[in-house]
Design a protein around this nucleic acid. Structure first.
Length: 840
DNA sequence: AGCACGCCGACT
DNA sequence: GTCGGCGTGCTC
């Protein structure tokens, strides 16, 4: 192809460093042609990416003399004066990503809550005087035309030569419908792609497998990629590339079959939004990402009906309220507020938030889950109107369009109170004065996939970067928050009754533990006689009860009564959970399921014994103990409609912790924790703190009343339980826990990171883990700074054998120093999880 | 992530 | 020689 010499640019502008929402590091692009000036940090840009255009975020200046031949960014989407993300936030998040040794794209893909799906009208033409006929008949001419009329790959080739002029106009997001275009209205360009096509004659030099692959391709028709062909033909990629080099197949431009997602949309009719399309199609087994949906619209496979739609409505804020309470909260850079009930905490917080909003500053409130977010919205959003601004929510519950609309309200300073999930953390709040993290100890802040970010850590960095205060507010503080200055509200009235499975009170006639081994059955198991009696009282008085089971399903495992064999997952080293309703055994780690075997694999016994009651088991027991009392279930497997309970009807709901995401039933008189010990048996140093917080949250679940809290346990003396029984405040237990952590050198007296070394081969994993250990020591790590390596608690997980090392450093800087040692290649997959939670 | 490439061991 | 599995590197 012809090379075109561009006029010499002088001096060469500094490249821009940008991130795309993929697990790759930040990459450099040259600024768009003719654009000088400062680097637009925090603005979104369109960049060429794998032959198409992708939305990227500018995070800084690139390497001025990088070795790479850089491509040009194509278009800047946001005004430099009003960046999509505040530059200080960009800096804070990028620093956090660097410290955590994570590719910046992975982190931004998780943390940028809106804006990846930009919508624009894209027009192109040939640079005046350029002749693009070398690119084929369907190349742009000197006349402006919609980019849809050309194939993305062709446009990219022209763009790379510097022969394309492009014009972008933002199109307003519509509330209307996304509709599949009739096939004859789809631009011709969209219907052509480059594919691998079999030559009519197979070359004589093909190997047997090569011949098989050629025959498959000749019969099945062209394939989009080498891998797709290899997968389909059932051969390795080596074979198919062999066929190509032997001349048995070649890349050709052909009419493309309509994408599966287009077929889906044609069949299912118009949908509300791009994300509705993506979700619907994916749910039906047709993979489609929101970005993929956007790209199909851009290429002309579907239309987003353009109506001058008003911005999508956001939830109504609460009624305006004015507080006359004095502000008793600390003025420190970071402080805490715990105890009381959520309403009293919001009342205490209100004077501070009102004052800051009235000063024209911004306030961001983060919640870990839907339930907390809803309560915060109800409790705090009304403050905005009184202070002359607006409140907006940002969370996954909003559609893309609503989130983007809310984001723009924040960006334009129309809304200065933001209440949201972690997706709100990077919102462009000008001049934030306070970031409130609600329930800072919640595990829901730990992102389950991708970056594994722990949001309060990132929030602290963002607050610091903006010189804003960080407030940690919740039912009970994390041990990490204890050293901060703060306030503790008096605990709500709590009535606690402990059923002590280890020490049944009566039966003195047997003598002091005279060789009698009491089984839990003596007290009633899994529902104690006490709890059963209380449930019958609830029934007689027409009240309501909630029982918390430690797990979903029927039982933790099945065991053969003859040989003690327990069915295990075939991918993981754990027992399969028994689900009676579906008569299936399920792995709660990887989702593997099988039906219950008729007989024991080992000895042939035909009976199974269930151990470790779950929600199904508890629900059945309650039905037996209190016949006629309506029983509802609420866990990940089954979410019964709780409307009758919320309408005040009598009944009992059996669930897992998921229950706390719902409002408490209004007539709730009894809460039972059927086996508290499960929360303590986890091999995690935060287990008891989590247990304590669960009890506190149960105690304040009902907004006004204090239902009787019955705790069945083998550890009735556990201090996390005792502080509630004794009516002590929310700080008492975490403060004791914090002293224990000091003695052991755990957070907040150290910063932890878990290094996971995993491979399909257990020996390889073990050896690599040892190499990581040696490398850390070689780099000067002290003995107390590196623990392990040890096989993961679940020795085999999804088919790989993970080994764990725990790094324990005095502060972030030292941790970052230790992690720098890992920046090289290893003989196994090495992943870092900074501030890990659970499974330690 | 998704893709292509290349090394290596197994097998003929 | 042939084949496939698996690890590695790349996307600007």
């Amino acid at each position: 192809m012809r090379r075109v010499t561009l006029p010499p640019a002088s001096p060469p502008p500094a490249p821009w460093r940008v991130v795309v929402p993929l697990p790759v590091p930040a990459l450099d692009y040259v600024p768009p042609h003719g654009r000088g000036g400062a680097v637009p940090v925090g603005c979104r840009v369109l960049v060429p990416w794998r032959g198409e255009l992708a939305v990227a975020l500018v995070v800084g200046e690139g390497d001025p003399h990088g070795a790479h031949r850089l491509r040009e960014a194509v278009h800047v989407l946001d005004d430099e004066e009003e960046p999509w993300v505040p530059p200080a936030t960009v800096e804070a998040v990028c620093t956090w990503a660097r410290d955590a040794r994570l590719p910046a794209g992975l982190v931004w893909g998780d943390l940028l809550g809106a804006g990846w799906t930009a919508r624009y009208d894209h027009r192109v033409r040939a640079v005046p005087g350029a002749d693009l006929s070398a690119f084929g008949r369907r190349a742009p001419t000197g006349e402006w035309a919609s980019a849809r009329d050309f194939s993305p790959a062709l446009l990219d080739a022209v763009r790379e030569q510097g022969l394309l002029e492009e014009d972008f106009r933002p199109t307003s997001r519509t509330r209307g419908l996304v509709r599949a275009r009739p096939l004859d209205a789809v631009p011709a360009a969209a219907r052509t792609t480059t594919v691998l096509q079999a030559d009519p004659e197979a070359p004589g030099t093909l190997t047997p497998k090569g011949r098989q692959a050629w025959a498959w391709l000749a019969e099945q028709g062209p394939q989009p990629t080498l891998s797709a062909w290899a997968r389909g033909a059932g051969v390795g990629t080596g074979v198919v590339s062999g066929v190509v080099s032997a001349g048995g197949a070649e890349h050709v431009e052909v009419e493309a079959a309509p994408p599966a997602a287009w077929t889906w949309l044609s069949e299912h009719g118009p949908v509300e939004s791009l994300s509705a399309w993506a979700n619907g199609a994916t749910a039906d087994g047709v993979p489609l990402s929101p970005t993929g949906a956007g790209s199909l619209v851009a290429r002309g496979w579907a239309d987003a009906v353009q109506e001058a739609a008003p911005p999508p409505p956001l939830p109504e804020p609460g009624a305006p309220w004015l507080t006359h309470d004095p502000d008793r909260l600390p003025e420190a850079a970071a402080w805490r507020l715990h105890g009381g009930r959520s309403l009293s905490r919001f009342r205490t917080l209100a004077p501070r938030i009102s004052r800051l909003l009235a000063q024209g500053r911004g306030v961001l409130v983060l919640a870990p889950d839907h339930a907390t977010l809803r309560r915060a919205w109800e409790g705090l959003s009304g403050l905005a109107e009184t202070a002359g601004t607006r409140a907006v929510p940002i969370s996954g519950a909003l559609s893309d369009g609503q989130r983007e609309h809310a984001w723009n309200l924040i960006r334009s300073e129309e809304a200065r109170l933001v209440i949201g999930s972690y997706l709100a953390l990077t919102a462009s709040l000008p001049d934030p004065a306070l970031i409130v993290v609600l329930e800072e100890a919640s595990d829901a802040y730990k992102l389950a996939a991708g970056s594994h970010a722990f949001i309060p850590d990132v929030a602290a960095r963002v607050a610091q970067a903006h010189d804003a205060a960080l407030a940690l507010v919740g039912s009970a503080p994390a041990a990490e928050s204890v050293p901060l200055p703060g306030a503790v509200l008096p605990p709500p009235r709590a009535r606690v009754h402990v059923v002590d499975y280890a020490n049944p009170p009566e039966q003195p006639e047997l003598g002091p533990l005279s060789g009698v081994h009491l089984t839990p059955g003596d007290l009633g198991y899994p529902v104690s006689h006490d709890l059963a009696r209380l449930l019958r009282q609830v029934q007689e008085r027409g009240r309501q009860a909630a029982l918390l089971a430690p797990r979903r399903g029927y039982s933790a495992l099945l065991r053969c009564p003859t040989c003690e064999h327990t069915p295990q997952c075939r991918n993981c080293d754990v027992a399969l959970r028994f689900h009676q309703e579906t008569r299936q055994l399920t792995c709660h780690q990887c989702g593997y399921r099988e039906s219950v075997p008729d007989r024991c694999d080992v000895c042939g016994e035909q009976m199974w014994k269930a151990r470790g009651p779950g929600t199904e088991w508890i629900a059945q027991t309650v039905e037996k103990l209190a016949p006629g009392l309506p029983v509802y279930r609420y866990d990940r497997d089954r979410q019964d409609d709780l409307a009758p309970l919320h309408a005040g009807e009598s009944g009992v709901v059996v669930g897992t912790q998921l229950l706390l995401s719902q409002d408490a039933p209004p007539n709730l008189a009894l809460i039972g924790v059927t086996l508290a010990d499960t929360w303590l048996n986890l091999s995690d140093f935060r287990a008891s703190e989590r247990y304590h917080r669960l009890l506190r949250q149960l105690a304040e679940w009902h907004p006004e009343r204090a239902p009787l809290l019955v705790v069945q346990t083998f550890q009735a003396d556990h201090p996390a339980l005792k502080v509630l029984v004794e009516g002590r405040d929310a700080l008492a237990y975490p403060a004791a826990e914090e002293r224990v952590r000091a003695a052991l050198g755990y957070p907040p007296h150290a910063r932890l990171a878990q290094v996971e070394v995993a491979a399909r081969d257990p020996v390889r994993a073990k050896v690599a883990a040892q190499e990581v250990f040696d490398a850390l020591h070689g780099a000067g790590a002290h003995a107390h700074e590196v623990l392990g390596p040890a096989p993961s608690p679940v020795a085999r997980l999804r088919g790989v054998y993970p080994y764990h090392l725990l790094l324990r450093a005095r502060d972030d800087a030292r941790l970052s120093q230790l992690l720098a040692t890992l920046d090289r290649s290893w003989k196994a997959r090495v992943r870092v999880d900074v501030n890990p939670r659970g499974g330690l």
